[in-house]
Structures are given as C-alpha cells and as structure tokens.
Design a protein around this nucleic acid. Structure first.
Lengths: 240, 240
DNA sequence: TGGTATTTGTCCGTATGTATC
DNA sequence: GGATACATACGGACAAATACC
C-alpha cells in the first residue's frame, strides 16, 4: 500500500465523518488548520477535500468553510456504487453471496455482437451467463463478454469466484474506468427461469463498458436485476 | 461568465474530442506540450485533464500519456446525467418539452413526510406533482417537495417553466449538490392515469436530495419514469 | 541489458483573487 | 475596513512508470 499523503488525509477525514467526529451540517476545520494538523501543504489538504466532495461527503462554501453533508441512510438490502464487485459489496453488506455460471463459451465477435458490445468484429471473446445469489435469493443475471487476449485463460471456476480478483491478482490487470448505463426492460425467458420476480414484468439493467489501465475496453456486461432489490446511488455537482 | 483558465482548457479539449480532432484510443499531446500551447502552468493543464477523466472522456496512463476513451453512443431518445434540469436536457436533445402541474399545495412536514424526505418535522414546504412531456409524450411524473424558506414564493406558473431557473436567476440560490437514488417500483394509480405505460407494470424512480450552496437540503423529489424512455449514464474510476 | 529521455504522479511554497463574517 | 476562508494560478522539485535507443 503506497503512502500517499492526500489519500491518508482523505481517509482520516472520511473516517471522522463516518464515526460522527464531524457531523451532518457541521463545518470542518479550516484548510489552514488542517494544514497545521497534518503538517502538509494547502494543496494536499485541498486535494483530499476535493475527493470528499466528489463522494458527496462534504460541500465547500466559498468564504465560509467546508460543510459535512453526509448522513447515513437507513438502507435497503443491497447497494451498488462506484466500481465495486459483487463479492466486495456482498462482504461490505455482510451478506452471503454465491455465483453460478449457467453458460460458458468462447466466440468471435460478429456484426450482431459488435452492435451490442462495441467490440471490434473478429475479436476473440469469452461469453458467459452468471446468476448471482445473495443469501440464496437469485437477484441478478449477468451476461458477460470478455476479451480473450486480456482476460487470459478464464475458467468456469474463476467465474464462480470473482473475475476481477483474478484479473488484478493473477493477471496484474488493473480495472480503471467503467462507463455505465441504466435502463428498464421487459423480462425474458432466462429472467423467468432463474430470478424470483414475483409479479414484476420488467428488470433493471445495468450495462457496463470497462477499460483497463491501457485504455482498452476489455469487458462488456449486462446485469439484469430483480426490481425489488435494485438500488443505485449517485452523487453529482452542478457546475456553473 | 468568469474567465477561468482550467475550464477554458477543459472545454477546448472536450470540444476537440467531441469533434474528433482527438479520436478514440488516441493519446492527447503531453502535459508539457499543452503547457506551451495554452501558455499556463502544468497544474492548470492537469486540472483540466482531471475533469475530463471524471467525465469519462480520457484516462491517464502513468509514464505513457492521456488516452481518449470517449466514443459516441448511438443513443436512445432521452438521456440524463449530472445535475441537469428537464428543460436543459430537452434542449440539448433538441426535443419539445412541456411541464404540467397537476397538483400544488403547501404543507407542514409531519412524521410521515419526514420519514420519506428527511426534512425536519414542522418544516414549511411546497408539495407539487408535475407531469413532464417530451414531444407530447408523457414520460415522467415528479413529486416535488421544496422548503418554503428557500424556494420563496413558488407559483404554479414558475413550476410549469423551470424551478431551478427561477431559483438561480431570481432568488440567486445556487444548486450545488445532488444525491440520487435509482430504484424500480410497481406502478400506482397516478402513473396509470398520466403516463403512457403500454403494458409495463413498473416505473423507474429517481429520488433526489438536493443541497444549496449553504449545504442546506432544500429539495426532495421523486421522479417516476416510463421504463421505455429511461436511460441513465454514469462513469466511475476504480481507486486502488 | 542498460541508460536516458519522456510522461504522468505527488508535494511543496507562494501570490493573488473573491466571498463571507 | 479588516480578518478569515476558499479558489485560482504559477513555478519548482522529485518520484515512478514507460518508451526508446
């Protein structure tokens, strides 16, 4: 773990907000005070604060200070946000998770797949379908497309654990950027077979385009969520 | 309009990417080259680039350069993102928009409303319901709750145009931060009355908590979207 | 293989501007 | 008007990753 100053300050402040040392609507100590406290430059403090702003933890007010706007939400059973794997968020939410691979194959991108995924034609890919269980309830069906030249030697066993973990630990590939799109669509046969839909006739779909550290898109995934367990959080600043 | 250097550079680079001067997967000129070109410090260039990163336009690669990862998506009819008003995004997407206020009242926050909105009990608020039309198709029903002490003298007429415009232009209130939650829920009677749902039995719901420049939450809104015209975009970086 | 140049990442100090109290 | 606090901008130093010869 690198010892990066602005991240240490960021994490320290974040923890203090989480543990209510600084509470909702309160002002943080001024930048200059923090500079003295952490024995660093003002730029470094400001960088830490900028990260808290984009997390929706605080809001800066010109001439006044930095106000805490984070408050705990009494939360539903599941929560996504940022780039987090199913395994990671399950652990964070203290749930029992399980992934079942129901389909696994290799293919070459044709026109139809290119249209869907934006992978160039004739790229070699893995295509799989996975059902995600949380506390033994089937919540999500994933349709995964991975570039074979980047996600090398993928197996069913790896896919049942965590593909991202495999990539980061074994292949030393770093996932960096994800572009995501959310939509709602009618259910299909697979949804009906695997998911517990009650009487919903649609699913929430999250479509992911994922890029590695070289800026190459190596993954296209559509995740079909049962509506009643789907929550997605976001945080945005309005730029004048 | 303030003349802020890093925003000028940011916009210039963004335009060049949009207009394909720099194309998908290409490297931008190096920071030092850009420093010379824009006659500014390296920090300023880096700040512009940092903004492009968080927009999902580029990705920086240590020791190598800054790669463009933006590509146009052949898009559906409607698109949200960031804090953008219905009016703004309609204009951007070149559509005819219209808002109809179907309910307008003033209330005092009781326990039930506190539970829903997180407004403190006995806060004075405006409560309204609005139907949003795009090209004469009813796409969204908004349930808006505004603090009366901040959104002063709200009228039906203002609500049929743009409440945010009124706040920024007339009240000089600056909307700064929004926390957002997306869910999917069963349709209710109002949805059935006003929206064109075809045979969907659920709607996409975007719940907004909006804060002004003073860090005060002044708005709670639930927007119920017809599924077939709902698209939401997001962009995320994985932090190691 | 190794050394050098290039490029991005982190951090510092300082100066000036602008908004608030 | 003066003090305080955040915002923008500059310039420099060194580290780390990569590219190139």
């Amino acid at each position: 773990m690198a010892k990066i100053k602005y991240l240490e300050i960021y994490n320290d402040l974040k923890n203090k907000i989480d543990s209510k040392v600084y509470t909702f609507q309160q002002l943080l100590p001024s930048e200059n005070t923090l500079v003295k406290h952490y024995d660093c430059s003002r730029n470094t403090v400001r960088r830490a604060i900028a990260n808290l702003v984009s997390d929706g933890y605080v809001q800066t007010i010109h001439g006044q200070g930095v106000r805490v706007i984070y408050q705990e939400l009494k939360q539903k059973e599941y929560l996504f946000g940022g780039i987090e794997t199913f395994k990671e968020s399950s652990i964070r939410n203290k749930n029992k998770y399980r992934t079942e691979v129901v389909f696994f194959t290799e293919l070459t991108v044709d026109e139809e797949i290119e249209q869907l995924t934006s992978f160039p034609i004739s790229t070699e890919i893995y295509y799989l379908q996975r059902v995600r269980y949380l506390d033994e309830k089937p919540l999500i069906i994933d349709y995964n497309y991975f570039r074979k030249d980047i996600v090398k030697d993928l197996t069913k066993e790896i896919a049942e654990d965590s593909i991202y973990e495999y990539m980061e630990n074994e292949l030393k590939e770093n996932i960096i950027t994800t572009k995501r799109m959310m939509t709602v669509e009618k259910i299909n046969e697979l949804d009906q077979t695997y998911l517990n839909l009650q009487d919903y006739n649609c699913v929430a779909i999250v479509t992911n385009f994922t890029f590695n550290a070289d800026g190459v898109m190596f993954e296209f995934t559509q995740s079909r969520h049962t509506p009643d367990s789907f929550v997605f959080f976001e945080q945005a600043q309005r730029i004048k």
